[in-house]
Amino acid sequence: MKSVQKVDLTKIKPYGDTLNDGMVQMSFTLPVPYGDEASEAARQLAAKMGFDEPAVVYSKDLGVGYTYFVMYGKCSHTVDYTSIEVPKVSMEFMEREEVEEYIAENIKRDVVIVGACTGTDAHTVGIDAIMNMKGFDGHFGLERYKGIDAINMGSQVSNEELIAKAIESKADAILVSQVVTQKDVHVANLTELVEMIEAEALRDKLILVCGGPRISHDLAQELGYDAGFGSGSYANHVASFVVKQIVEKNLI
């Protein structure tokens, strides 16, 4: 058996066939007609991006004077993996049963949580994974939790409707899902919600959480949320965070 070459985590780069060959495959479209000149333009562009030995391995005429490329190139840069630190919600997550016990012991009433996927965003799977009875990946959703009254408003909900529902149901927490991030619509959408909540003088009375595949805890906090949950989140993570915050912020 050949010995496996050891990875230097302070200098990582892409892997193609052999360790540290830096091989990258990328694709893009250029607004020029298909042909040799187009391929040369793509090659020069990849070189400017910092790739060594850029090569066009596939190109296709998209019509209307546009060409699509698949390219290979070798990345010469490295990243120090050991120095990377991504802020995450830092707490010990409880399991469902523990959350239920925590509520019974410390809050002693039903916790109301309103959730929605807001704006024009129509992706319901994320918020359903967190809220619906069935849950996601073997983890039951909030609807299943004893002591939690989970209200899932679905997708394409306006910030106005969401806040109105939260006020009406005397919610303890609002959960917002944002999946589409084109042109930073998620940022505008998420800040509008916080601003409206501040305007309604509710910010100190509510736990505000957002989530989605491109949401980080860091970004969420920058936007004025209490927490952000990305890919691979489960209902018990959010539930743990929310119930602990209710106690910590004295919102019992």
Binding site: T191, V194, E222, L223, G224
Partner: peptide
Amino acid sequence: VFIDGAIDRKA
């Protein structure tokens, strides 16, 4: 005191 607002927040 100068307070720099976040993103497009105005509160």
